[in-house]
Computed example of a mutant assay.
Amino acid sequence: MRHLIPALIAAAAVAAAPVATAREKLEPEAELAKLLEGRVAGEPQKCIPLSTARSSQIIDKTAIVYKVGSTLWVNRPEGGAESLDDDDILVLKTSGSQLCSIDTLELHDRTSRMYSGFVSLGEFVPYRRAKGE
C-alpha cells in the first residue's frame, strides 16, 4: 500500500500537467491581430490564385487567412462567418484556378467529416510585411 500512494500522486501529476501547460486561447479578433502583427493592409481584391496558396487558417467566427508567398490574404466572409470553426476543413468545389469573392466554401467537421455549414466569401485583403521589417 505504501508504494501505491506515490504512484497515485505521480499519475495525478501527469494527468494534470496538460491542463497546467495548455496555452490560453485568444479571442478571435486578438488572434487575427497577432497573426497580422507587423503587416500592412493593401487594396482588397476580388480573387486570389489557388495554385500559389500554400495554406489556409480559420479564425473562429471571424475570417479565413490564406498564405500566398509571404503575403497573408484575409477573407471576412459575407455570409456564414458565425459557422467558422478552426477545427473544420474547408471544401471548395471548383474547376477554376482562382478563389473569388463570389465563391462559397463548405465546412466539414475534421473528426466526423460531417457537413457543418458554409461561408460566402468576401473580398481578399492582402497583408504584407511593413518595409524595413
Results as ranks from 00 to 15, higher is better:
Met1Tyr: 14
Met1Asn: 12
Arg2Glu: 15
His3Phe: 13
Ile5Asp: 06
Pro6Leu: 12
Pro6Glu: 10
Ala7Arg: 13
Leu8Ile: 12
Leu8Cys: 13
Ile9His: 08
Ala10Val: 15
Ala11His: 09
Ala12Ser: 14
Ala12Lys: 09
Ala12Ile: 11
Ala13Ile: 15
Ala13Leu: 15
Val14Phe: 13
Val14Asn: 11
Ala15His: 09
Ala15Asp: 10
Ala15Phe: 10
Ala16Pro: 09
Ala16Leu: 11
Pro18Ile: 15
Thr21Gly: 06
Arg23Gly: 07
Glu24Ile: 15
Glu24Lys: 14
Lys25Val: 14
Lys25Phe: 09
Leu26Lys: 09
Leu26Ser: 11
Leu26Val: 12
Pro28Glu: 13
Pro28Thr: 10
Glu29Arg: 15
Glu31Cys: 09
Glu31Ala: 15
Leu32Arg: 00
Ala33Asp: 15
Leu35Trp: 02
Leu36Thr: 00
Leu36Ala: 00
Glu37Gly: 08
Arg39Glu: 00
Val40Gly: 05
Val40Tyr: 04
Gly42Val: 01
Pro44Gly: 02
Gln45Leu: 07
Gln45Ala: 08
Pro49Trp: 01
Leu50Ala: 03
Leu50Ile: 05
Ser51Asp: 14
Ser51Gln: 14
Ser51Val: 06
Thr52Ile: 13
Ala53Val: 05
Ala53Arg: 03
Ala53Lys: 03
Arg54Tyr: 08
Ser55His: 07
Gln57Lys: 13
Gln57Glu: 13
Gln57Thr: 02
Ile59Cys: 05
Asp60Asn: 14
Lys61Tyr: 11
Thr62Trp: 04
Thr62Ser: 06
Ile64Arg: 00
Val65Phe: 01
Val65Asn: 02
Tyr66Asn: 00
Tyr66Arg: 01
Lys67Ser: 12
Val68Ser: 09
Val68Leu: 14
Gly69Glu: 10
Gly69Trp: 10
Gly69His: 10
Ser70Trp: 08
Leu72Ile: 04
Val74Tyr: 00
Val74Arg: 04
Asn75Ala: 07
Arg76Phe: 05
Pro77Tyr: 00
Pro77Leu: 01
Gly80Trp: 04
Gly80Glu: 03
Ala81Val: 05
Ala81Pro: 03
Glu82Trp: 10
Ser83Phe: 15
Ser83His: 14
Ser83Tyr: 15
Leu84Ile: 05
Asp85Glu: 11
Asp86His: 07
Asp88Ala: 15
Ile89Phe: 01
Val91Leu: 07
Val91Ser: 06
Val91Thr: 09
Lys93His: 10
Lys93Gly: 06
Lys93Ile: 08
Thr94Lys: 02
Gly96Trp: 01
Ser97Phe: 00
Leu99Met: 08
Cys100Arg: 05
Cys100Lys: 06
Cys100Trp: 06
Ile102Gly: 12
Asp103His: 08
Asp103Ala: 04
Asp103Asn: 13
Leu105Gln: 01
Leu105Pro: 01
Leu107Glu: 06
Leu107Pro: 01
Arg110Lys: 14
Arg110Val: 12
Arg113Pro: 05
Arg113Phe: 12
Met114Trp: 10
Tyr115His: 09
Tyr115Glu: 08
Ser116Cys: 08
Ser116Arg: 12
Ser116Val: 11
Gly117Trp: 07
Gly117Ala: 07
Val119Lys: 02
Ser120Phe: 11
Leu121Gly: 00
Leu121Ile: 09
Gly122Leu: 04
Glu123Asn: 11
Phe124Gln: 04
Pro126Ile: 10
Pro126Trp: 04
Pro126Gln: 12
Tyr127Cys: 01
Tyr127Thr: 02
Tyr127Ala: 00
Arg129Phe: 14
Glu133Phe: 08
Glu133Gln: 13
